[in-house]
Design a protein around this nucleic acid. Structure first.
Lengths: 148, 148
DNA sequence: CCATTTTCGTCAGAGGGTCTGACCATCGTC
DNA sequence: GACGATGGTCAGACCCTCTGACGAAAATGG
């Protein structure tokens, strides 16, 4: 991911800045709201928990980490009260990771911050350019995201 | 960075996929070429070394890490023979981190891979959409990258 | 219906990346 | 020259992630 001598940077690197900015804003806002024990890694796992709960293995697969890593992160989320594990009624081996009350609060706040940041970006780029940006990124995802 | 229930994902997250894909490709290709002792963190530091060498403090600032972290990574890069530290003739305290021969080789290869991946993306999106994407990301960088 | 294989999850251990805090040497300035 | 600012290192800690090994439950297939 090298920065070329002329100002031209590769597209992968250019994608990095907005992503980092979004994550930093999220983390800062959540911390300011009292959710100061959350980390980015935890967030990336938590973001993939479905409404009815999700298996650890699925979380790991979608987040592109090992089961062990996902388990470790869920341990922390559970200890902090953001999620809880319940038995999966359809499979004796499995457990479902489900959002707890405290977790839902974080999700609501995170959504608001995301919308806020996107609004700022739209103000900078203009409506049309932003829509094109989103469309391009979504198409790009087809070939850069192994998970759909 | 939550994934919303409907398919719509926030722009920060959408930016993540291409970035991750680019980094993964780079790392895999470099490893296959025999540079198998390099890591992403090292790459992010190394990418910021200028032609005449760069001070550790500047590397740290641009990469948004502490001096200690940058120093640690440069240690590894030096041990692997990618860079070397030379005294800064203009400042007795400072040392310049400069690319070594082996480092230059990596940079050349990395540039080629980046161009390759961008070509694939362009093939998927089309020339015009790719140009627009780049323009939008560059404008977005103005407000999402604290370093210029 | 049982044996085998697969899947779900955990435990244990290791290495890498990053940070804070303390510290020394040198530079620049008054 | 004295003193604050700057470049860099050392030490210690924490978090993230991985590999390997394993037990329990489910799925498969005679």
């Amino acid at each position: 991911m090298t920065a070329e001598p002329n100002g031209r940077q590769n597209l992968g690197l250019l994608c990095f800045y907005p992503h980092r900015a979004m994550e930093a804003r999220l983390l800062a806002t959540l911390a300011a709201a009292g959710f100061d024990d959350i980390t980015m890694a935890q967030g990336r796992i938590a973001a993939r928990i479905g409404p009815a709960g999700t298996r650890l293995t699925d979380l790991a697969e979608q987040a592109l980490v090992t089961k062990q890593t996902a388990g470790h992160l869920v341990d922390q989320l559970e200890r902090s009260g953001y999620v809880r594990r319940v038995p999966d009624p359809t499979d004796g081996r499995a457990r479902l990771v489900r959002m707890a009350e405290r977790g839902e609060q974080v999700v609501h706040l995170a959504r608001r911050v995301e919308a806020e940041v996107e609004a700022e970006w739209t103000a900078h780029l203009g409506e049309e350019a932003t829509a094109q940006l989103r469309a391009a990124l979504e198409r790009l995802r087809e070939i850069t995201d192994p998970y759909r």
